[in-house]
């Protein structure tokens, strides 16, 4: 890891990131509260409040996603999410081997962080998938459920609303797994909190 400090996260990315984080966590908690709705469970948020919060945060997250898309279109940050398919599997494998074995043997990371490569190949692959596949699907299905009249009533003999909802829940579940893994992997830095600090100050 380079010793000199790198300014990796400009202000707009940090604002987008923390807004996205807070909104996503509220959406996750209210989503679980609705999916597993049970008035007798004190750990769940009430159904009525969950519906309102989920709607508001869902719209806010969608608008915030536009910030991400436009930011990536008009700044160099967009390049961080692009990857070459040639040798991709090898790079993913090398990074995985580092996380599973290399880091315990105090080996140097195979892909050190630089201004051009803020993400290692595994991060680049997972972040791109989450942001350019997962988010569009969950936002589109969420908007569809906010305006259920736009959903086709029947799809292969099954309720269109059900298919949309199932897609929304499944992608939500996968993204929530991403959240847990993301937070954990962020503790792998020069100290446990160094990566969290970087996302607050912008300096790595």
């Amino acid at each position: 890891m380079a010793n000199e400090k790198l300014y990796l996260y400009p202000l707009w990315i940090r604002i987008w990131h923390w807004l996205n984080a807070v909104l996503f966590i509220v959406l996750l908690l209210t989503g679980i509260s609705m999916q597993y709705s049970n008035p007798e469970n004190p750990l769940l948020i009430s159904f009525e409040l969950s519906v309102q919060l989920h709607n508001i945060c869902g719209i806010a997250l969608s608008i915030n996603y536009l910030l991400f898309i436009f930011g990536n279109l008009f700044t160099s940050n967009g390049k961080q999410y692009k990857m070459k398919t040639k040798g991709l599997f090898k790079r993913l494998y090398d990074q995985s081997v580092f996380y599973l074995f290399g880091m315990f043997k105090k080996q140097a990371p195979p892909f050190p962080i630089s201004l051009e490569n803020k993400f290692n190949p595994l991060q680049r692959f997972i972040y791109s998938t989450a942001m350019y596949i997962g988010f569009p699907i969950i936002i589109a299905s969420g908007i569809a459920m906010l305006f259920p009249e736009i959903i086709i009533p029947q799809l292969f003999g099954v309720s269109g609303l059900l298919v949309t909802a199932l897609l929304h829940v499944v992608i939500g579940f996968i993204l929530s797994l991403f959240l847990f893994i993301h937070i954990y992997v962020c503790t792998i830095g020069s100290s446990i909190i160094s990566n969290f600090k970087s996302m607050l100050t912008g300096w790595h």
Binding site: M34, Y36, S37, L161, L162, A165, F173, L177
Partner: peptide, 25 residues
């Protein structure tokens, strides 16, 4: 199959699968 009522639609197999995957993570 015919409708979607959030909170009431529970699929036993998907629930088990999600708990298993989450547990493994």
């Amino acid at each position: 199959n015919e409708s979607y009522v959030i909170g009431a639609n529970r699929n036993k197999y998907l629930n088990i699968l999600s708990v298993v995957i989450f547990g493994l993570v």
